[in-house]
Write a protein that binds this DNA or RNA. Structure first.
Lengths: 198, 198
DNA sequence: GTCTATAAGAGGATAGAC
DNA sequence: GTCTATCCTCTTATAGAC
C-alpha cells in the first residue's frame, strides 16, 4: 500500500472535512497528519477550495463508476430484476463506505458559503448521471408493461430516490448496516406499495 | 412587536448559525444585522458558545413546552388516540417552523468540535423529557392491552422516533409540508405495520 | 448599554531558498 | 518537492470612555 503525498493529503483532508467540517478544518492540521508543512500542500492543490472539490468529485466518480461496473445491469435480464440489483448493490456499496456517504450528506444539506455555487453545479452534474441510469431501467419496465405507463417516469424516479436516500440516511444516522435479508424485504415492500400500487 | 436588543441578537444569530453554520458565523455579522457593534454583544452574552447554546436550549424548551401544552393529552381519552394526537401535533408544530428543526438536525448530525460535549449533554437532557412523554403513552397502551406486552417499551419508542424523525427530515430536505390528510394515512400505515404487527 | 480601540491569535496563501 | 519566513486578513474577546 504505497501512498503518494498527494493521496495522503486527500485522505487526511477527507477525514477532517467529514468530522470537523470545511470551515473548521485548516490546512495546517491536514498537513500535520501527513507530516509536511502547510506550504507544501500548495504544490499539489492551489487552494483549500480546490482540495475540497477534488475530494467531493472523487467520491461521486467512484460511486458512479461502481454502478456502471455492475455486471448484471449489462446482461439480458428483466429490467425489474435489474432495478432490484441496482438498489441492492447501491445499499451494499454505501454500507461498505458510510463515511463517504456521510460526507456527501453533510455538504448537500449544509454547503459552505464560499463553495456553494460550485457544489451545486457538481451535484447537478453527478445526479444527472445517476438519474439517467435509473431512468433507463424504469423506461424499460414501462416498455415491457411491468410498470404502468400512465404514471410519469420522473414520478417513479422521485419515489426511487426518496426510498433509497432514506435508507442511506438511516444507516448514517444509526450507524447500523442493513442486512442482506432485510434489503430484499424492504425492496419487495417498496415495489408493491410504491411502484405497483397507487 | 417590540423586540429587545437581546432578542434581536438571538434571532440574527439563529438565522446565521442555521444558514452559514457555527464556525462560519462571526459575531460582527450578527451584530451588523442587529445594528450594534460587536463589543456590545458581550454585554448580553459572555461568549459565542454561550450565545449558541442558549439558542439551542430555547428551541428545545419551546418544543417541549408545546408538547406539554397539548390539551388532548391531559384528557381522559384512549392512549392510542393520544399517541396519534402527539404525532399529529408534533408534525404540525415542525411544519410551522421547519427552520428550528433544521437547526437541531444540523447540530445533531454535525456538532462543532468546541461545543460537542455541551451539546451532547443538552441533547440527552431534552430527549429524555421527550422520551418520557411518549413512554408514558406507550405504557398506557400496553396496560390497556391495545399494544402487545411481549414487546419491549424501548422497542416501541425506537420505532416511534424513527418514524417521526424520518418525516421531519423528509420535510426539511424537500421543504414540503405534510398535509393533514396525509398525516392520518401515514399514521394508520405506521400503526398497523410497525406497532400492531411484527 | 453602546461605543472606540486594541490585544492576541488563528488561518489562507505566497516568496524564495535548498 | 519540501522547507522557512512572512504577509495579510479575519476573528474572538477585553479595557475603558461616554
Amino acid at each position: 500500500m504505497i501512498s503518494s503525498t498527494k493521496e495522503k493529503i486527500r485522505y487526511a483532508a477527507f477525514k477532517l472535512f467529514l468530522e470537523k467540517g470545511y470551515e473548521a478544518t485548516n490546512i495546517r492540521d491536514v498537513c500535520q497528519e501527513v507530516g509536511i508543512k502547510a506550504s507544501s500542500l500548495y504544490f499539489y492543490y492551489k487552494s483549500k477550495q480546490e482540495l475540497f472539490l477534488s475530494i467531493y468529485d472523487e467520491i461521486w466518480s467512484d460511486m458512479i463508476r461502481f454502478i456502471e461496473s455492475i455486471e448484471e445491469l449489462k446482461q439480458d435480464i428483466s429490467p425489474d430484476i435489474k432495478l432490484y440489483t441496482l438498489f441492492k448493490s447501491t445499499i451494499e456499496y454505501c454500507s461498505k463506505d458510510m463515511a463517504k456517504l456521510k460526507f456527501l450528506l453533510r455538504y448537500h444539506l449544509f454547503p459552505p458559503e464560499d463553495i456553494i455555487k460550485m457544489l451545486r453545479d457538481k451535484y447537478k452534474f453527478w445526479t444527472e448521471k445517476e438519474n439517467n441510469i435509473v431512468s433507463d431501467l424504469v423506461k424499460d419496465c414501462i416498455d415491457k408493461k411491468i410498470l404502468r405507463s400512465e404514471r410519469n417516469i420522473t414520478d417513479y424516479l422521485k419515489e426511487y430516490f426518496k426510498f433509497i436516500n432514506f435508507h442511506i440516511i438511516e444507516m448514517i444516522i444509526s450507524s447500523i448496516k442493513i442486512s442482506n435479508a432485510e434489503i430484499y424485504s424492504l425492496w419487495l415492500k417498496f415495489w408493491n406499495c410504491n411502484f405497483l400500487n397507487q
